[in-house]
Protein backbone atom coordinates (compact mmCIF):
# COMPACT_ATOMS: atom_id res chain seq x y z
CA UNK A 1 0.00 0.00 0.00
CA UNK A 2 2.48 2.60 -1.18
CA UNK A 3 1.60 6.22 -0.73
CA UNK A 4 0.32 5.65 2.79
CA UNK A 5 2.26 5.93 5.98
CA UNK A 6 0.06 3.40 7.75
CA UNK A 7 1.90 0.14 8.45
CA UNK A 8 -0.87 -2.33 7.61
CA UNK A 9 1.69 -5.07 7.31
CA UNK A 10 5.40 -4.72 7.12
CA UNK A 11 7.45 -1.57 7.27
CA UNK A 12 5.88 1.85 6.84
CA UNK A 13 5.44 2.88 3.20
CA UNK A 14 6.76 6.12 1.70
CA UNK A 15 4.52 9.07 1.03
CA UNK A 16 2.96 9.76 4.41
CA UNK A 17 4.08 11.39 7.63
CA UNK A 18 6.34 9.59 10.04
CA UNK A 19 4.38 8.30 13.02
CA UNK A 20 4.57 9.73 16.49
CA UNK A 21 7.15 7.76 18.47
CA UNK A 22 9.57 7.97 21.35
CA UNK A 23 13.00 6.37 21.44
CA UNK A 24 15.81 6.84 23.94
CA UNK A 25 19.15 8.34 22.96
CA UNK A 26 22.44 7.01 24.28
CA UNK A 27 22.27 9.63 27.02
CA UNK A 28 18.74 8.70 28.03
CA UNK A 29 16.90 11.60 26.41
CA UNK A 30 13.77 11.25 24.34
CA UNK A 31 14.14 11.16 20.57
CA UNK A 32 10.82 11.83 18.91
CA UNK A 33 9.23 12.74 15.61
CA UNK A 34 10.12 16.38 16.28
CA UNK A 35 13.81 15.48 16.11
CA UNK A 36 13.36 14.48 12.47
CA UNK A 37 12.48 17.99 11.34
CA UNK A 38 14.84 19.91 9.08
CA UNK A 39 17.12 17.12 7.92
CA UNK A 40 17.10 13.76 6.18
CA UNK A 41 17.18 10.87 8.63
CA UNK A 42 17.75 7.18 8.03
CA UNK A 43 16.55 4.90 10.81
CA UNK A 44 18.40 1.60 10.67
CA UNK A 45 16.24 -0.96 12.47
CA UNK A 46 18.31 -3.99 13.44
CA UNK A 47 17.57 -7.12 15.50
CA UNK A 48 20.26 -7.33 18.14
CA UNK A 49 23.48 -5.76 19.33
CA UNK A 50 26.54 -7.98 18.93
CA UNK A 51 24.88 -10.37 16.45
CA UNK A 52 26.98 -11.32 13.43
CA UNK A 53 24.86 -9.80 10.68
CA UNK A 54 24.28 -6.57 12.62
CA UNK A 55 28.03 -6.33 13.07
CA UNK A 56 28.55 -6.60 9.31
CA UNK A 57 25.83 -4.03 8.72
CA UNK A 58 27.31 -1.32 10.94
CA UNK A 59 30.84 -1.93 9.69
CA UNK A 60 29.56 -1.40 6.15
CA UNK A 61 27.54 1.72 6.98
CA UNK A 62 30.36 3.26 9.00
CA UNK A 63 32.50 3.18 5.88
CA UNK A 64 30.12 5.49 4.01
CA UNK A 65 29.07 7.85 6.83
CA UNK A 66 30.99 10.79 5.40
CA UNK A 67 29.33 10.30 2.03
CA UNK A 68 25.92 10.18 3.66
CA UNK A 69 26.66 13.32 5.65
CA UNK A 70 27.77 15.05 2.46
CA UNK A 71 24.32 14.30 1.08
CA UNK A 72 22.68 15.66 4.22
CA UNK A 73 21.64 12.30 5.65
CA UNK A 74 22.05 11.25 9.28
CA UNK A 75 21.91 7.56 10.28
CA UNK A 76 20.67 6.16 13.57
CA UNK A 77 20.74 2.54 14.69
CA UNK A 78 17.44 1.44 16.27
CA UNK A 79 16.88 -1.80 18.19
CA UNK A 80 14.99 -3.14 21.17
CA UNK A 81 18.24 -3.50 23.11
CA UNK A 82 18.83 -1.46 26.22
CA UNK A 83 20.96 1.66 25.62
CA UNK A 84 23.97 0.33 27.52
CA UNK A 85 24.04 -2.76 25.31
CA UNK A 86 23.77 -0.63 22.18
CA UNK A 87 26.55 1.64 23.36
CA UNK A 88 28.82 -1.29 24.21
CA UNK A 89 28.11 -2.77 20.77
CA UNK A 90 28.85 0.48 18.98
CA UNK A 91 32.05 1.09 20.92
CA UNK A 92 33.26 -2.48 20.45
CA UNK A 93 33.03 -1.94 16.70
CA UNK A 94 34.58 1.52 16.73
CA UNK A 95 31.45 2.78 15.02
CA UNK A 96 30.11 6.32 15.47
CA UNK A 97 26.53 5.78 14.30
CA UNK A 98 24.35 6.98 17.18
CA UNK A 99 22.05 4.40 18.69
CA UNK A 100 18.39 4.78 19.70
CA UNK A 101 16.82 2.32 22.10
CA UNK A 102 13.28 0.94 21.89
CA UNK A 103 13.66 -1.11 25.06
CA UNK A 104 10.77 0.05 27.25
CA UNK A 105 7.95 -0.22 26.35
CA UNK A 106 9.62 -2.87 24.26
CA UNK A 107 9.35 -2.30 20.52
CA UNK A 108 6.66 0.39 20.71
CA UNK A 109 8.35 2.78 18.30
CA UNK A 110 9.50 -0.06 16.07
CA UNK A 111 5.92 -1.29 15.83
CA UNK A 112 4.72 2.19 14.85
CA UNK A 113 7.09 1.99 11.89
CA UNK A 114 5.92 -1.54 11.08
CA UNK A 115 9.41 -2.89 11.60
CA UNK A 116 8.83 -5.27 14.51
CA UNK A 117 9.51 -8.98 13.92
CA UNK A 118 6.90 -10.69 16.04
CA UNK A 119 8.28 -14.19 15.47
CA UNK A 120 11.33 -13.57 17.62
CA UNK A 121 10.43 -10.35 19.42
CA UNK A 122 13.08 -8.12 17.88
CA UNK A 123 13.27 -5.34 15.34
CA UNK A 124 13.25 -6.68 11.83
CA UNK A 125 16.06 -5.50 9.61
CA UNK A 126 14.55 -2.42 8.02
CA UNK A 127 15.52 1.02 6.78
CA UNK A 128 13.28 4.06 6.86
CA UNK A 129 14.34 7.34 5.26
CA UNK A 130 12.48 10.41 6.45
CA UNK A 131 12.78 13.80 4.82
CA UNK A 132 13.23 17.21 6.48
CA UNK A 133 9.43 17.62 6.28
CA UNK A 134 9.02 14.47 8.44
CA UNK A 135 7.50 12.58 5.54
CA UNK A 136 8.67 9.03 4.86
CA UNK A 137 10.67 9.17 1.63
CA UNK A 138 11.71 5.54 1.31
CA UNK A 139 11.65 2.31 3.22
CA UNK A 140 13.09 -1.18 2.95
CA UNK A 141 12.45 -4.33 4.93
CA UNK A 142 14.17 -7.70 4.79
CA UNK A 143 12.24 -10.92 4.33
CA UNK A 144 13.67 -11.87 7.71
CA UNK A 145 16.19 -10.32 10.11
CA UNK A 146 19.07 -12.17 8.46
CA UNK A 147 18.68 -10.23 5.21
CA UNK A 148 21.13 -7.37 4.99
CA UNK A 149 20.63 -4.28 2.80
CA UNK A 150 23.76 -2.89 1.20
CA UNK A 151 24.74 0.74 1.63
CA UNK A 152 24.15 1.17 -2.10
CA UNK A 153 20.39 1.02 -1.53
CA UNK A 154 20.55 4.08 0.73
CA UNK A 155 22.43 6.05 -1.92
CA UNK A 156 19.92 4.94 -4.55
CA UNK A 157 17.11 6.23 -2.34
CA UNK A 158 18.87 9.55 -1.70
CA UNK A 159 19.31 10.04 -5.44
CA UNK A 160 15.75 9.03 -6.30
CA UNK A 161 13.91 12.33 -5.60
CA UNK A 162 16.24 14.19 -7.93
CA UNK A 163 15.65 11.69 -10.69
CA UNK A 164 11.87 11.62 -10.47
Amino acid sequence: MRGSAQPISGVIAPGGPAPEFTLKTETGEDFTREDLAGRTTVLVFYPAAFSAVCTDQFQIYQEVLEDLAAQGATLYGVSCDQSDSQLAFRRSLGVTIEQLSDFEPKGAATKSFGAYFEATGVSNRALVMIGPDQVVQWSWEGEHPGTLPGANLIFDALAAPAER
Binding site: Q57, I60, E63, L148, P149, G150, N152, L153, F155
Partner: peptide, 8 residues
Amino acid sequence: LAAGATTT
Protein backbone atom coordinates in the same frame (compact mmCIF):
# COMPACT_ATOMS: atom_id res chain seq x y z
CA LEU B 1 29.86 -1.33 -1.69
CA ALA B 2 28.21 0.06 -4.82
CA ALA B 3 27.87 -3.52 -6.04
CA GLY B 4 25.94 -4.33 -2.88
CA ALA B 5 28.61 -6.05 -0.80
CA THR B 6 27.36 -6.59 2.73
CA THR B 7 30.08 -8.75 4.21
CA THR B 8 33.63 -9.97 3.76
